[in-house]
Every structure is written in structure tokens, then in C-alpha cells.
């Protein structure tokens, strides 16, 4: 498909750009590993005191953290830096070039830059989930693997849509710094499975800003049992929020007044 070809070019060109800047991949890896190591150390210490936490065992928790890492890395690989740049593009007027190309403008503006270095970070996540599966004696069937991959894609879609919708506020406000802060807080809450939370918080994390749900479903699909209803709801939720993001984009463009010359 045409958009797949386009994305391949985005990746190629981002790789070329990286070569020009000589990023230290080793450092990226170490930093990412450090962040998740801290989480792991904490969990390890916690589990010397208890056997399960809200129904999650130690290695199931490790798996969850590894999944978080993978999704977070794919997030920075693809949409993140592009969305971060949107308010600046609106201010400078560079957005105009995106609107006038015969390509879906939301696709172009969300995915144009690729951060290949993030794939290295994803590697730590993969290592971690492998470790968790082996140490925890958990079996990975083909079916579960498929469910897992599908849910990772949909978790990304949820993250993207929420962040994108919030970023579109910069069409009307000048700055949109709060978006990244909200995202940061949601991630902070989501470093643990959503089962930990109760009541109001759980509701927000599951249905309003569903980072929590997204991450939890992905892990559950492999290390626990997941009910058909919950999984389907998750998929529907993911596509619904995406549809909202498309609507918000169209609406924003319609009322776009563009930077003055």
C-alpha cells in the first residue's frame, strides 16, 4: 500500500539523518535499561514482603514492566516526537505545507520523523519479558503471542489518540506544555497494572484516558487469562478514540486561521 511505502521512506530518511548526527546508541540503551531497572529493583524489594499484589505475582509484574517498556519505546519510535512538534509547527506556519500535500495530513504530521534509536530501548523490554516468562515458568502459546502483538498495536493507538487529541488544543491555546505533563502522570500511574487502582482513578485510567487499560490488557493476554468481553471492549475503545482523534483533526483544520505572513 502506498502509505506503507511512504513510511518506509520516512524510516530510511530518519536513519540517514541519524547517521549525520552520530547518536550514542549505547547511552540510549543504558539510560532506558536504567529506568526500568529501577522499577524492577523496586518490585523485587516489594515482593520480598508479599507473594502477590492485586493478583499479580512477581514475574507477572516483571512481564508487565517489560511490556510497558516495549510500548513506550514504540511510542517514541513513531508518533511521540512528531506530536511534540505540532504546536511549534502551528505557530511557525510550517503546518501549511502538511495540509497541502496529496497525502493524509494526519498521517504525515504524526509519523514523518522516526526515531530508530528507540528500537534499542524496545530491546530491553523484549529481554525483560523473555526473562520474566522463563523465570516465572509461564508458557507462551502462538495464540497468546498473537493476542499480545495485536494488543500492543492497539495500546499504541490509544496512547497516540489521547495525546493527539490533547495536542490539538494548541490550535487554540498558544502553548500545549500541559499535554506532556498529563502524559507523564498517566505513565507514572501506568507503571503498575490498572488492577491496583480502585474507584475513580481506575475509571479514568480505563475509560477516559485509557493508558492503564491499554497496558494491562496487553500483559494480561499473555500472563493471565483475559476474557473475550474485556479484550473486545479494549479493541472497540481503541478504535473509537482513534476515530475521535480523526474528527478532532478535521475540526481543527476547518477552523485553522494559520500564522500571519
Amino acid at each position: 500500500m502506498r502509505y506503507v511505502r511512504l513510511y518506509r521512506i520516512f524510516i530510511e530518511q530518519s536513519l540517514m539523518k541519524m547517521a549525520a548526527y552520530k547518536i550514542n546508541f549505547g547511552l540510549v540503551f543504558v539510560t532506558n535499561a536504567a529506568f526500568f531497572s529501577v522499577q524492577l529493583i523496586f518490585m523485587h524489594l516489594v515482593f520480598t514482603n508479599v507473594d502477590t499484589l492485586a493478583g499479580w505475582t512477581k514475574y507477572e509484574m516483571f512481564f508487565y514492566i517489560g511490556t510497558f517498556n516495549i510500548i513506550d519505546s514504540l511510542w517514541t519510535f513513531g508518533p511521540f516526537f512528531n506530536l511534540l512538534a505540532i504546536p511549534g509547527m502551528i505557530r511557525s506556519g510550517a503546518l501549511d505545507y502538511y495540509i497541502t500535500k496529496p497525502v493524509n495530513s494526519q498521517f504525515l504530521i504524526s509519523l514523518r520523523n522516526v526515531d530508530p534509536g528507540s528500537l534499542i530501548s524496545a530491546l530491553t523490554g523484549v529481554i525483560l519479558i523473555t526473562f520474566a516468562l522463563i523465570q516465572g515458568g509461564m508458557e507462551l502459546t502462538f495464540g497468546k503471542a498473537v493476542l499480545y502483538v495485536v494488543s500492543i498495536f492497539h495500546a499504541l493507538m490509544i496512547q497516540y489518540s489521547v495525546y493527539f487529541i490533547l495536542t490539538c488544543s494548541s490550535f487554540w491555546l498558544v502553548k500545549a506544555d500541559f499535554v506532556d505533563s498529563i502524559h507523564g502522570i498517566l505513565c507514572y500511574f501506568s507503571t503498575r497494572p490498572v488492577d491496583i487502582y480502585k474507584g475513580f482513578i481506575r475509571f479514568i485510567l480505563s475509560y477516559v484516558l485509557p493508558y492503564g487499560l491499554a497496558l494491562t490488557v496487553a500483559s494480561k493476554a499473555v500472563v493471565k487469562t483475559i476474557h473475550f468481553a474485556e479484550y473486545t471492549l479494549f479493541l472497540i475503545l481503541s478504535w473509537s478514540i482513534f476515530a475521535v482523534s480523526v474528527g478532532v483533526w478535521r475540526f481543527s483544520l476547518k477552523h485553522y486561521s494559520s500564522a500571519s505572513s
Binding site: 516489594v46 514482603n49 502477590t52 499484589l53 492485586a54 502522570i185 507514572y188 500511574f189 482513578i201
Partner: peptide
């Protein structure tokens, strides 16, 4: 304000932990 939210997250987490302990 973000810090306040973080405390809320920690409170929720530790509550569950102590329940389990």
C-alpha cells in the same frame, strides 16, 4: 500539582501492598 498526583498514585499502590501483606 503533578507531585500531588504522584503521591496519590503511591498511596493507591501502597494501600494494595499493605492489604496483601
Amino acid at each position: 500539582l503533578m507531585d500531588v498526583f504522584r503521591v496519590i498514585a503511591e498511596i493507591a499502590f501502597w494501600k494494595v501492598l499493605f492489604d496483601n501483606a
